[in-house]
Amino acid sequence: MKKISKALAVAAVAGAAAAYMPAASAVPVGLELVLLVDVSGSVDATEYGLQKTGYVNAFNSAAVQNAILGSQLGNIAVTYVEWSGNNQQSQQVGWTLIDSVASAQAFATAINGTTRAFSGLTAIQDAMMYGGSLAQANNGYEGLRFVLDVSGDGADNDTTDCNTGANAACGRDAALAAGVTTVNGLPILGEGGLLAYYTANVKSASGFVTPAANFGDFATAVENKLVKEIIGVPEPISLALFGVSLAGLGLARRRRMPV
């Protein structure tokens, strides 16, 4: 009887791990990361340049490169998205595999080559919903985590999709329901109450907020934030055990939908 029970347990573990494993065509990565960057009208041309340069410098930095190479599976898939008002989101740099110093530098170069997509109102909720749609799409990668990295300098002022006044939480909740694992925030302070707003309405329960005092401090803040979320949760464990834990908790991440 003990042998039979043990055999069943082993089979259950193997089955759970197999259920987690990505499709043959998908590249396994430790993290799928969506950089959601505020380019609304409150961000002037100088501030926009500081913000973009912050991301360029971060992916050129040894700190971020070492975090990626030392993270679970030693790689990430990342995309750079600019957003403003409702229905204003642009995937400026598509999904990119970073698994080396050279590929991190190439991603930085690609960001540097973009031009500003928008300069409208501020719809954080719609940006996070867009991030949720990316979690549902087949991007060619399958990660252990799917994280939204939201940065911006103001609270929502374009809430048509949510109909909840100045509350972006519905967008965050929609993204989590779509399969996003975690939402982290980087508020660029200046507007009163923005840190509390991001803490209450943008970050998820498993996420965190890293504020920048101003646009001049953005580069340091974004580098620190990227390192933290790249090497963050879950702690490095075996792929099989990670799959078992997801299956056991009923938290297996989204099923991919066709693009």
Rank of each mutant, 00 (worst) to 15 (best):
M129S: 08
G132K: 02
S133G: 06
N138W: 08
N139G: 09
N139D: 15
G140S: 07
G140H: 03
R145Q: 15
D149G: 06
D153R: 04
N157G: 10
D158W: 03
D158R: 02
T159V: 05
T160E: 14
D161A: 15
N163D: 15
N167H: 08
C170S: 15
G171S: 14
D173Y: 04
A174I: 00
V180Y: 14
V180K: 09
V180F: 14
T182S: 13
T182D: 11
N184H: 13
L186T: 10
L189S: 01
L189V: 03
G190A: 10
G190I: 02
E191G: 02
G192A: 15
G192H: 03
G193D: 06
L194W: 09
L194Q: 11
T199S: 13
N201K: 00
N201T: 09
T210S: 05
P211E: 13
P211C: 12
P211I: 13
N214E: 12
F215D: 05
D217Q: 07
D217Y: 00
T220R: 02
T220Y: 03
A221N: 03
E223I: 02
N224H: 05
N224W: 00
N224P: 00
N224F: 00
L226R: 07
V227C: 02
E229K: 01
I231F: 12
P236D: 14
P236V: 10
I237M: 14
L239P: 00
L241I: 12
F242C: 07
F242E: 06
G243P: 06
G243Y: 12
G243C: 07
